[in-house]
Write a protein that binds this DNA or RNA. Structure first.
Length: 486
DNA sequence: CGAGGAGCGA
DNA sequence: ACGTCGCTCCTCGA
């Protein structure tokens, strides 16, 4: 019940700044209907709900369900059916997602167990060291107890706050690790237990034994940015880094002996969309001429052609983060440079790509005037709180407003690609299957005879979803497990 | 059972 | 005050 209520009320999910109404309020607003209140059912003495007579409890519960269904139907009339994007994208996508969910992904339980065994040993080692240094038994998994040990008992310096006290997250611990080895060991312990509980044990629990597969659920109605989300398990946050973390992906296998996993991902899709939508000549030009975009930005940030690898790293970060309306403070923290330097780079970026700034400005002005922003596919996102009198709140919604058209457009592009790919695979009677979507990446189980055609056709479909002055670019990766696809 | 902290992905 | 959006795990107090 709560799920429908939470996810399908369009005007509420599309305007996060707006105050939420309760189900009772909505019933009154839409149907002029007064619902039975909880207090009425439990009476003056506020008895426990299980003491309420079955008849009364039934009516009360029925009302909840009925009103929810009515509101859902209303919203369908108002939003779902009238919205073209819904008929062209979301509805056709339903079956594509269903097929991916049913197909599943093959996982090696043995591989997971192997990793798990190693982790279990490391966890014991780290635990032993930490408890020895602390000279006391405590639960390392509890941030509160970690704080007690480190700061109350050992007297380490402390500064970062959380809502309810002091933070002991990895950033804090890292900064202490050089002088206080215990902090390093706690970081290690956290990494090992995170891998163990979330990925090794979490994934193992969800394996369907007869076929050694896991079957996620993709949700189309959760993310305010129009992206999909994935649960049970979440396949969109499997570790991707080097070393031990990446080893989880080794457990993701093709179905058949002769099959391979093939991954296609959109390269720099958000920066490309920024170029297309802002129509900035310099940004478009750097993609048109096949120039390396990061080198191009680096040239303007540092005024020279032969930028060092560190300068390239900065240029790459600036290209990436500007899309999110990042502040000098944020950028400096993110890439470890002084704040004034970060400010200079951000300014230079806007100088070099002037229409990007214009585009952001126009987007914000449009939103202030109309109360929504929209994508090139004509999808709207209502942000009325952009006119908030509190400048901090306003700034936050402004960042939302400039990022949303880009992120939502990229989400729509990959959704359209998925629909077309699904049609292609079915029409050609292909045995290969689309098995995962990770925001800008699609993963396929490819049978060997079909590799050449997949390699040719899938990127072609993905790259031609929209026609624009510059094309979208897709990279391909092949492997005998998911880790090799990079 | 739910809030809060922590940490993974794009 | 200072990127956004998600999901899952754990602890802890009601």
């Amino acid at each position: 019940m709560a799920k429908f209520y939470d996810t399908l009320l369009w005007e509420y999910i599309s305007d996060p700044g707006k105050k939420w109404l309760s189900l009772d309020d909505l019933a009154e607003k839409y149907f002029d209907y007064k619902m039975i209140s909880y207090d009425e059912v439990t009476g003056k003495s506020q008895i426990n709900f299980k003491e309420v007579s079955l008849e009364e409890a039934s009516i009360y519960s029925w009302e909840d369900v009925y009103i929810t269904a009515k509101i859902y139907a209303e919203q369908q009339k108002k939003w779902i059916i009238s919205d073209k994007t819904l008929n062209d994208i979301e509805i056709p996508l339903l079956e594509v997602l269903k097929n991916m969910e049913v197909t599943g992904v093959r996982i090696s339980k043995e591989k997971l167990q192997e990793i798990g065994k190693y982790l279990a040993e490391e966890i014991i080692k780290e635990e032993k060291i930490i408890l020895e240094i602390a000279w006391e038994n405590f639960n390392i998994k509890s941030p509160k107890q970690v704080w007690d040990i480190l700061f109350s008992k050992m007297g380490l310096p402390q500064w970062k706050k959380t809502k309810t006290g002091y933070s002991v997250d990895s950033e804090v611990l890292e900064s202490l690790a050089f002088h206080y080895p215990i902090a390093r060991h706690i970081v290690n312990y956290r990494q090992y237990t995170k891998l163990q509980s979330t990925y090794v044990e979490g994934l193992s629990k969800l394996i369907y034994e007869p076929t050694s597969t896991i079957h996620t659920s993709y949700n189309q109605t959760i993310a305010s940015t129009g992206r999909l989300s994935s649960t049970n398990p979440n396949l969109q946050n499997i570790p991707a880094s080097n070393g031990l973390w990446g080893s989880i992906r080794e457990a993701f296998l093709p179905f058949g002996e002769n099959d391979v996993l093939v991954s296609f991902d959109y390269s720099q899709i958000e920066v490309r969309l920024l170029a297309i939508m802002s129509e900035d000549e310099n940004l478009l030009g750097s993609f048109q001429n096949g120039v390396d975009i990061h080198a191009n930005t680096g040239y303007f940030l540092f005024g020279k052609d032969d930028i060092s690898s560190d300068e390239r790293r900065i240029a790459k970060a600036v290209n990436f983060w500007v899309i999110y309306g990042i502040s000098p403070f944020g950028l400096s923290k993110m890439i470890g440079i002084p704040q004034n330097e970060a400010r200079e780079y951000i300014n230079k970026f806007y100088e070099q790509y002037p229409k990007v700034g214009d585009f952001f400005k126009k987007t914000i002005e449009f939103c202030e005037k109309h109360g929504y922003v929209e994508t090139i596919f004509g999808r709207k996102r209502f942000i009325t709180s952009i006119n908030d009198s509190n400048s901090i709140i306003k700034k936050a919604w402004e960042r939302e407003a400039i990022n949303m058209p880009i992120q939502w457009t990229s989400a729509d592009i990959i959704k359209l690609a998925m629909i077309q790919i699904d049609t292609f695979l079915r029409e050609k009677n292909m045995q290969s299957k689309m098995i995962m979507q990770v925001h800008d990446e699609l993963v396929f189980n490819v049978v060997s005879e079909e590799f050449e055609i997949i390699k040719k056709e899938i990127p072609a479909i993905m790259e031609h979803i929209i026609s624009a002055p510059i094309s979208l670019k897709v990279d391909m990766w092949v492997g005998k497990n998911w880790r090799e696809c990079k």
